[in-house]
């Protein structure tokens, strides 16, 4: 496999983790976050700072990165969700802008606009991830784990509760579901996954800088979720693949540096607008669950019409 292909697939894997985790929040919980790139960055910077500048072990630094990213999610969620989803949009947008500013300005910790170089890829016993091929496998394993966790969560009663709250909060409350607590919990989980993606990203590039974690990135991730289908795990992965492939495709058309970035962004914006008119639910959608009854009860059901 060519280095170019390896690089593309690794990017897809990492952004699929971001897209998947955001779909939990946007698609399954119905909460709009503009801060996913910020949480991605919190994870990346925490890992980079602790492992490079403070000599922490990769495992400890990863744990810290996940916890801090989750905490950042909680910081914006707890006050905002007491009120409404609109407050959350504001809080998340503000967090994103503040985070970008902090990444660029807190030079002593984040290295400012220069970023943090010298991130080392992890070593698992005899397996060294310095080569791009094993690293790709590692990225996909992380993606698979996150996807499995997400899938499990969504199909569980907790997932059903999320969907109930998403679609009708009043009914959810009337059925005894903890509305605010669930929303905050999902925001924290989404943040944790974004933080994990940040760790893998830093390990991959072995260097991070503020430019990767700006509003534009948050918009890209949102576009991935919308394109692939907000409520489909597989869809968010496909969405990530599609959106990740576009910038390199655009580079085929020989454009000036300064135009390529904005053009890409403008294209994503246009895609969002067009999708809202043509197919707002995205490529793939979640189907209603059948939930069959257990074998033994089938016969009993034929007779009884009484509720115990």
């Amino acid at each position: 496999m060519s280095p170019y292909m390896l690089s593309l697939l690794t990017s897809i894997a990492i952004f699929a983790i971001l897209s998947l985790s955001l779909s939990l929040l946007i698609g399954h919980m119905g909460i709009f976050s503009m801060a996913h790139a910020a949480l991605f960055g919190v994870g990346a910077y925490t890992y980079a700072f602790l492992s490079v500048k403070q000599d922490w072990s990769p495992l400890a630094a990863t744990a810290a990165a996940i916890v801090l990213a989750a905490a950042a999610g909680a910081v914006m969620a707890v006050p905002a969700l007491r009120v409404s989803g609109d407050y959350f949009i504001v809080a998340s947008f503000a967090l994103q802008i503040v985070a970008s500013s902090v990444f660029s300005n807190w030079t002593s910790v984040t290295g400012g606009t220069g970023g943090i170089p010298g991130i080392v890829r992890p070593v698992f016993g005899p397996i060294d991830l310095f080569q791009d091929q094993p690293f790709l496998v590692y990225s996909f394993i992380v993606l698979l784990i996150v996807a499995a966790l997400g899938f499990w969560l969504v199909r569980s009663p907790f997932g059903r509760m999320m969907h109930t709250i998403r679609d009708d909060e009043v009914v959810a409350a009337t059925m005894g579901k903890p509305v605010r607590g669930t929303k905050i919990l999902v925001t924290v989980l989404a943040g944790a996954f974004a933080g994990l993606a940040g760790v893998v990203y830093g390990q991959y590039l072995m260097y991070i800088s503020p430019g990767s974690f700006e509003v534009a990135t948050s918009v890209s991730i949102i576009t991935m979720v919308v394109v692939g289908g907000m409520t489909s795990i597989l869809g968010s992965i496909i969405g990530a693949a599609i959106i990740t492939v576009i910038p390199p495709l655009l580079q085929e058309i020989r454009l000036a540096e300064s135009v390529a970035g904005p053009l890409e962004q403008a294209f994503f914006g246009l895609l969002l607008v067009v999708l809202m008119f043509t197919r707002p639910q995205g490529l793939l959608a979640d189907k209603p669950h059948r939930r069959p009854r257990s074998a033994g009860t089938q016969a009993a059901a034929q007779e009884a019409s009484h509720v115990a």
Binding site: P157, R160, M161, H163, T164, D167, D168, V171, A172, M175, K177, D286, P288, H289, R290, R291
Partner: peptide
């Protein structure tokens, strides 16, 4: 909840 299945609606 129109998007959820009938059985899921009751499970809620």
């Amino acid at each position: 909840l129109p998007r959820l299945s009938v059985i899921d609606n009751v499970c809620v």
